[in-house]
Simulated scan of single mutants.
Amino acid sequence: MSGPNLSGLYHMVSQENMDAYLAALDINFALRKVVCMLKPSKQIEHDPGTGHMRIKTMTTFKNFDMDFHLGQEFTEDLGPVDGRKCQTTVDWQADKLVCVQRGEKEGRGWTHWLEGNILHLEMRVQDVVARQIYKKAE
């Protein structure tokens, strides 16, 4: 099953509960404040034929690059985020792209989905959920 093609450039328009999410990842107070002020952009490259995806999250502070094949577990280096590594699998659940990150923190992962030109991102760790909304660049 392949979901919608998410390819494109998206700019963040809003976020909620980010500080609590970062605190649950044990990110220090000063860094949380910086991250909460950032307005990231996401460049998504998606090849539905091969199941290959690349999600680049770009900020003025730090960039994060995720390169993977759908349904194949890989070791993800979250050093730029919180210094951890985890076993990550990303795959479709209906029309939502769901990431499960197995490691030190329980219930860690995220979900992306599109509604028109709006890209939703829900990030989870333990019982904390943060949300970001991105708008596709024209």
Rank of each mutant, 00 (worst) to 15 (best):
M1G: 14
L6E: 05
S7L: 03
Y10W: 13
H11L: 02
M12C: 06
E16R: 13
D26S: 10
I27H: 03
F29D: 02
F29P: 00
A30L: 15
A30S: 08
L31H: 06
L31A: 06
V34N: 05
V35K: 05
K39P: 06
K39H: 13
S41C: 02
S41T: 13
K42H: 05
K42I: 05
E45P: 02
E45H: 15
H46M: 09
D47E: 13
D47R: 14
P48Q: 13
G51S: 10
M53C: 13
M58R: 13
M58Q: 13
T60F: 04
K62A: 01
K62H: 10
N63W: 10
F64R: 03
F64Q: 02
D65M: 13
H69Y: 09
H69N: 15
H69K: 15
G71S: 03
E73I: 05
T75E: 15
E76G: 00
L78D: 08
G83K: 08
T88K: 09
T89M: 01
W92L: 04
K96L: 07
L97P: 00
V98T: 07
C99R: 11
V100N: 11
V100P: 07
Q101V: 00
R102D: 04
G103L: 03
E106F: 13
G107M: 07
R108P: 02
W110R: 03
W110N: 06
T111F: 02
W113V: 04
E115F: 08
G116S: 12
G116V: 14
G116N: 09
I118D: 06
L119A: 05
L121M: 11
L121W: 03
M123S: 06
R124Y: 01
V128M: 09
Q132W: 02
Y134K: 04
K136T: 02
